[in-house]
Design a protein around this nucleic acid. Structure first.
Length: 540
RNA sequence: GCCCUCGUAGCUCAAUGGAUAGAGCCGCGGACUUCUAAGCCGCUGAUGUAAGUUCGAUUCUUACCGAGGGCACCA
């Protein structure tokens, strides 16, 4: 069971004091000061209520500080324009460091009992696993883990387009032997080109598309089944490398009928007929109009997504349902959700759905092709990096995930293969290396003599450890893993400074305090990397 | 044209309306007979423009400039 944290104690004490001063329920923040010199926690409470009370902020701060006593807090100071800064007692930090040895998955129980679904990656069978899928996977996996770290019951979902024009294009190319063997990724590219440049091919592809839906052609069924199975099996290998295990797989072959039905049942109330198609007028919600059933009577992606929502709803009631996609789908998604909120079967889940959109990954040199001259796919990137990391796939995965998860997800990412390959600076390997060092030291410490001198005051690295649970919870609330990435980089840096400055094992002896701090750092780094989905090696 | 993102140091990224805007890369300069140097220490360097709200704005509002994305039968 998580105890009341020092931060929560401060928050409660300040709230009580404000109430005593006649300023109850005024929102204030208790946060980590940017500079550790200002203490371990800080509040702007005095600044917020000063105006209300028509008093000088510093006087109010003094007034609040005089009334405050918080267990575990050593000093309460007034600084700057009227901040109240709290510095923890050495013993309190020591206790938290000891607790951090054991902090484990889900022990921060902020989300105990919550049921959450996270949908991400979403590659399409018959097409390549590209870099966008890699980004979606890194972000979605981390969001899933952030919720799990809070004790939530998380279902990982993957939605894959196994019907549609892209499938027909691929099958057409294989059927007409445009590629050697059954190279499904290359076949899609060939089929797509033919579709856009060759009228005859276009017509043939459209015919195949219909047959994929109605399954009346044995030859096409055989190609389809083979391609689908082979694609999906191949994706599983990639998920394994990336550390993802899905609980639910949804396919467009399941969603389209359901979605079609939902739209048809709501024509007149939610949707309207227009130019032979069925549309939703998004303008009523400040959005734009989109087609849900095309003039040929086939469901578009919009209708399929409504069907997907219905299938998800059948899996249970979720407190939160997160969908991770590329930002080009942001506007599209708003329209689908807006329409869904008018439909009984999917209204509840639509209202609990949060959309996380991520930017594009570009390359620093402007090229999108790999060494071999092909388009860079998720796989080729991983393979190239693994080779550069001397065969260490765990390091390569860490490098990629760190790059994706170090900045806010809505931003585009510039991936510099050179820099990533050099594994320098703030990077996944930097964090992994720090972890490996703590593990190596702990192995050596196990054979060392343990001595117990008087402990000095709390070191920076110890004071950082205090904040880990808050960071994870904040990142989960914001659906932003990069807060964890930034924090871990800071922690690893503080550890490396300590390590460089102080020799821990001297003449075969180590202090109990050093062991305690090492254990806390090791566990915090390991838990943090786990939240990010970055592998935690024993040795490098 | 309308809508949505985003503009911070030469480059790649941080900053929960707060305190002196932080890191890494690059560059320059250091420390190593010792626990993993993929590391550590020091130095130089930035909020697109113009207003507004606020005790206080990188953060909120408006306009403009610039980049990317979206806007009817693709996904």
């Amino acid at each position: 069971m998580a105890m009341t944290s020092v931060r929560e104690k401060i928050e409660q004490a300040v709230a009580q004091t404000l109430a005593d001063l006649g300023a109850a329920n005024v929102p204030f923040a208790v946060e980590r000061p940017a500079d550790m010199l200002h203490g371990d926690y800080s509040t702007n409470a005095a600044l917020v209520v000063a105006k209300l009370l028509k008093k000088n902020p510093k006087d109010v701060a003094q007034e609040i500080a005089d009334k405050l006593t918080v267990q575990g807090v050593k000093t309460i100071d007034i600084a700057g324009p009227g901040f109240i800064n709290f510095t923890l007692a050495g013993n309190a930090v020591k206790d938290i460091v000891h607790e951090a040895h054991e902090t484990s998955w889900g022990s921060n129980n902020a989300r105990q009992g919550q049921k959450i679904m996270v949908e991400y990656t979403d590659p399409n069978p018959f097409k390549e696993f590209h870099i966008g899928h890699l980004m979606s996977n890194a972000i979605g996996e981390s969001i899933a883990r952030l919720f799990e770290a809070g004790g939530a019951d998380v279902k990982r979902a993957n939605y894959q387009g196994d019907v549609g024009l892209h499938v027909a294009k691929t099958i057409w190319a294989v059927k007409n032997k445009k590629v050697a063997g059954a190279d499904w990724g290359a076949a899609y590219v060939a089929g797509n080109t033919a579709y856009e440049t060759d009228e005859v091919a276009k017509k043939e592809i459209q015919e195949i598309n219909v047959k994929v839906y109605d399954r009346t052609d044995d030859a096409i069924n055989a190609l389809y089944d083979e391609g689908r199975e082979s694609s999906l099996a191949h994706f599983e290998e990639i998920y394994k490398k990336l550390g993802t295990k899905f609980d639910e797989y949804f396919f467009e072959s399941q969603t389209w009928k359901k979605g079609l039905g939902l739209v048809q049942n709501n024509i007149g109330q939610v949707f309207e007929a227009s130019d032979g198609a069925v549309i939703y007028r998004g303008e009523q919600d400040g959005l734009h109009t989109r087609v849900f059933i095309n003039a040929a009577g086939l469901p578009t992606y919009e209708a399929k997504d409504l069907g997907l929502l219905a299938l998800k709803a059948e899996k249970g009631e979720f407190d939160v349902s997160v969908t991770v996609t590329a930002s080009e789908q942001t506007e599209y998604f708003k329209v689908v959700l807006a329409a869904a909120k008018h439909i009984d079967e999917v209204q509840a889940i639509a209202e609990r759905t949060q959309h996380v959109s991520h930017g594009m990954m570009r390359f620093a040199d402007g090229k999108m092709s790999s060494r071999t001259g092909n388009v860079v796919t998720g796989e080729s990137l991983l393979a190239d990096l693994t080779e550069a990391a001397r065969g260490r796939e765990d390091v390569a995965v860490g490098a990629i995930k760190y790059t994706v998860l170090k900045s806010a997800s809505s931003k585009d990412i510039v991936f510099d293969p050179e820099k990533s390959l050099s594994l320098d600076g703030d990077s996944g390997p930097y964090l992994q290396y720090a972890l490996v060092r703590t593990r190596s030291l702990l192995r050596k410490a196990a054979e060392a003599q343990v001595v117990d001198p008087q402990p000095a005051g709390a070191m920076p690295v110890e004071r950082l450890i205090v904040h880990f649970p808050e960071v994870v919870e904040y990142a989960a609330t914001e659906l932003e893993p990069h807060y964890v990435t930034t924090y871990l980089t800071e922690l690893a840096s503080a550890f490396n400074s300590w390590y460089a400055q102080e020799r821990l094992i001297v003449d075969g002896a180590i202090t109990t305090r050093s062991i305690a701090v090492l254990k806390a750092i090791e566990n915090t780094l390991a838990q943090g990397l786990k939240v990010l989905g970055i592998p935690t090696p024993e040795e490098m």
